[in-house]
Amino acid sequence: MATLDRDEGVVLTMRDYAETDRIITLLTPGHGKLSLLAKAARRATSRFGGALDLANRLQVVYYVRRKGLHLLREASLVESSPGLREDLDRLDAALWGLALADRVLPAESPDWASYARVRSYVSSLAGGLDPSLGRVAFSLQLLVAAGHRPRLEGCLACGKGEELTWHPERGGLLCRQCGGGGADVPPKVWKSMSALTRFPLTRAGRLRLDASTLSHIMGLVEGFWGHQLQR
């Protein structure tokens, strides 16, 4: 017999299922990433109302099922983010971040750190965080939360801070003397990355980084994520 459980969580993804149902992915602090079947959620008279939407923070009660998806019984809204709807780029960045979290975080593995970062990212964007900076900072911080912190305090072999190159397979920066290859990572880029991993989003949002530095960092982080996901 299915047992009841409860938690709160942020809606990462939603997709239609069958004629009137939806499957939602919820990132919770106590149960990690949960996939829940919300029966009849697409009906106009759905008991879930408008609570089931991306980025909403919900309190949920659900039936735990050993086989198949857990079944959502109740969902009440704890917090929505109307501020996201005021700006296209911030809304775009928020939904991109939720999709990233869904892709990289493991299912049903309790993870307070990732949950806190996702919540902070959504609320910071709703509060006006620069979306380009937010994307870069969030993807770096999600790496850290998921236990893949890149080494950004100089060469990971000798500790020097010169002629550094990027090596996701080794876990961070490597200088040329220690076997590093490829394009140099300018000090401004790796020092900014280091700051973005350490600062909370509210503080990281005050950093002044130009578009080319942000784009450079994003390229490096995407390479790092790609490597971690392949593993």
Partner: peptide
């Protein structure tokens, strides 16, 4: 659709 993805799509169209 009156949800985040509908809003995002609408905002792209408006722009």
């Amino acid at each position: 659709e009156p949800n985040m993805e509908g809003d995002l799509t609408g905002m792209h169209i408006v722009r």
